[in-house]
């Protein structure tokens, strides 16, 4: 029995390990610059969801908007069965299309010493926040859907993809452990700025922009402090080792 089971278990393990671990962090695979990436939505989904987004202003992120959108696009209301996650599909569609739209207005700058990545991050993140601006009165509903347990993985993955997209378009070329910390920090800052935005009544969301600016500056300071500490520790350790070597210690 155990013998018969062993190969099966082994296959399962192998198949499991083929799946990229840390799927949340591996936002995307090898990005080829020779081919445009295809849309994640099928034409039908695209037609229904983009039509349904127009109804969000009147009937929020609900199944009702979805079925109204389906009728608008020339499908039966029942075709909302295409979206098992219901109204969340609408939220997801908004998030994904807004993220993909960023690359229309920004392109990754070529590496140069004058490159100001933090400024780029700020303007790209603000542009993305403005993409949600029309739906701010309804955004509480979207956040409620995003915080449902079954939707959390998709939401978090989408946030990670957004952070990756912003840093890529801003020209960041960090490929050390900071790759992870940068993305996590930016995702956190973006999410809090979006939350702030739902309460923002200022003109043109100026307060949100200030909030985003301050959070990003704080993040920058923290990042600099961390790397300074790292450098200091490294130099002290190197000095200690060199000192001991000069005293004839065998290290």
């Amino acid at each position: 029995m155990a013998r018969a089971f062993a190969p099966f278990a082994l296959t399962c393990l192998r198949q499991r390990s083929r799946q990229p671990c840390l799927s949340i962090l591996s936002a995307r695979q090898y990005h080829s610059h020779e081919h445009a990436s295809s849309s994640p939505f099928s034409p039908t989904e695209d037609a229904i969801l983009s039509a349904a987004l127009k109804y969000v202003l009147s009937s929020s992120f609900t199944a009702e908007s979805l079925s109204l959108g389906a009728q608008d696009a020339g499908y039966l209301p029942i075709s909302t069965n295409l979206f098992p996650s219901g109204a969340f599909a609408l939220v997801n569609y908004h998030l994904v299309t807004q993220r993909l739209r960023l690359s229309d207005s920004f392109s990754r700058p070529d590496p140069s010493p004058q490159l100001n990545i933090s400024d780029n991050v700020r303007s790209i993140a603000m542009q993305r926040l403005k993409g949600t601006a029309p739906y701010i009165p309804q955004w509480q509903d979207a956040l409620a859907l995003l915080s449902m347990r079954s939707n959390i993985p998709t939401g978090v993955r989408e946030l990670a993809r957004l952070a990756d997209e912003i840093l890529y378009l801003a020209g960041s070329d960090t490929v050390t452990t900071a790759w992870y910390t940068d993305r996590m920090a930016l995702a956190g800052i973006y999410a809090s700025a979006e939350l702030f935005m739902t309460q923002d009544r200022s003109r043109g969301f100026a307060d949100t922009e200030d909030f985003l600016h301050r959070r990003l500056q704080e993040g920058e300071k923290l990042r600099d402090a961390g790397s300074m500490v790292g450098k200091w520790v490294g130099m002290q350790a190197g000095g200690l080792i060199d000192g001991l070597r000069s005293k004839g210690v065998w290290i």
Binding site: Q29, Y30, T174, V175, W179
Partner: peptide, 17 residues
Amino acid sequence: FNAMLAHHRIRPTAMYP
């Protein structure tokens, strides 16, 4: 390889440290 990773948007290994 650092340049390639940045260009092709590949995640560095999490075991870096």
